[in-house]
Amino acid sequence: MGWQDEMKAWFSSLKPVRPVEMIGLWRGAGIPSDHPFDGVLENLGWFGKRFHADMRADALLFQWRADRLVAIEPGFFPIRLAIKAAPFGRTRIARTWLFYLQKALRARGRTASLALQPSGEGATAAMSYDRQPIIDYFRRMNGQELAGMMCIEGDARRYFFKLRRIDATAATEG
């Protein structure tokens, strides 16, 4: 059994979460799983995700400055190209480019929808991206942390991450 299979089994063993439980601001971090995106988002300054009461979401929040979050439009990056460019995404040059391009890449609204979706045995909260063939499934790790599993249509590999609920006043939107 490979690392990806072990991670999928671990994720499936966690308890489901309801979409309404996810409303709020969450700080994210990748969980190494032999996926091409391992380490990429952290290098680029990924902060996490924000889920709104209308079941819409800011799928990709980045830390711009210590006191400012910026929601990036995931549709700017074709997912297949992003996977191929993943090694570049772990470089200092990529981090610098994203910093300077953040204003142009800023989302003009919420970029994903949150709903209950079938996942293994039962259903759990899942976020479907508006302009990408991606669904992030969520399960509960403990009282304040969730595990996420990003599924890209047509790709058997999964990217795993965790989210920790934080106080929304700890960061402001840009």
Score class of each variant (00 low, 15 high):
19 P>F: 04
130 D>P: 04
71 A>G: 02
21 E>P: 07
160 F>L: 12
61 L>Y: 06
71 A>D: 09
62 F>S: 08
43 N>Q: 12
149 M>W: 14
94 A>H: 07
133 P>A: 10
23 I>F: 11
130 D>E: 05
104 A>M: 14
92 R>E: 09
163 L>G: 11
36 P>W: 01
172 T>A: 13
157 R>L: 00
85 A>K: 13
135 I>V: 14
52 H>K: 12
84 K>S: 15
99 F>N: 11
88 F>P: 02
36 P>S: 00
162 K>V: 09
170 A>R: 13
160 F>H: 11
59 A>H: 03
60 L>R: 11
69 L>P: 03
98 L>C: 02
152 I>V: 13
5 D>M: 06
171 A>W: 11
71 A>V: 08
5 D>F: 03
57 A>R: 09
17 V>A: 12
44 L>I: 03
129 Y>V: 14
105 L>Q: 07
69 L>I: 03
106 R>H: 07
88 F>H: 06
99 F>H: 12
155 D>H: 01
106 R>N: 05
128 S>D: 07
132 Q>V: 13
77 F>K: 00
13 S>Y: 01
10 W>I: 05
80 R>M: 15
115 A>F: 05
23 I>Q: 15
164 R>A: 11
86 A>G: 08
96 T>D: 10
117 Q>T: 13
111 T>Q: 05
39 G>C: 01
50 R>Q: 00
49 K>Y: 00
132 Q>H: 15
86 A>E: 08
59 A>R: 00
70 V>T: 09
64 W>Q: 12
112 A>H: 03
144 Q>W: 11
98 L>I: 09
147 A>H: 04
113 S>V: 06
22 M>W: 09
140 R>F: 01
85 A>C: 10
89 G>L: 14
135 I>P: 11
56 R>E: 08
13 S>H: 05
119 S>F: 08
156 A>Y: 11
129 Y>G: 12
18 R>A: 12
139 R>N: 02
51 F>V: 15
51 F>N: 14
28 G>C: 09
67 D>H: 01
97 W>P: 00
138 F>T: 02
152 I>D: 03
106 R>G: 06
117 Q>C: 09
84 K>P: 14
110 R>L: 02
57 A>N: 07
143 G>I: 00
150 M>L: 13
135 I>T: 13
92 R>W: 01
91 T>W: 11
64 W>V: 15
55 M>Q: 01
27 R>M: 13
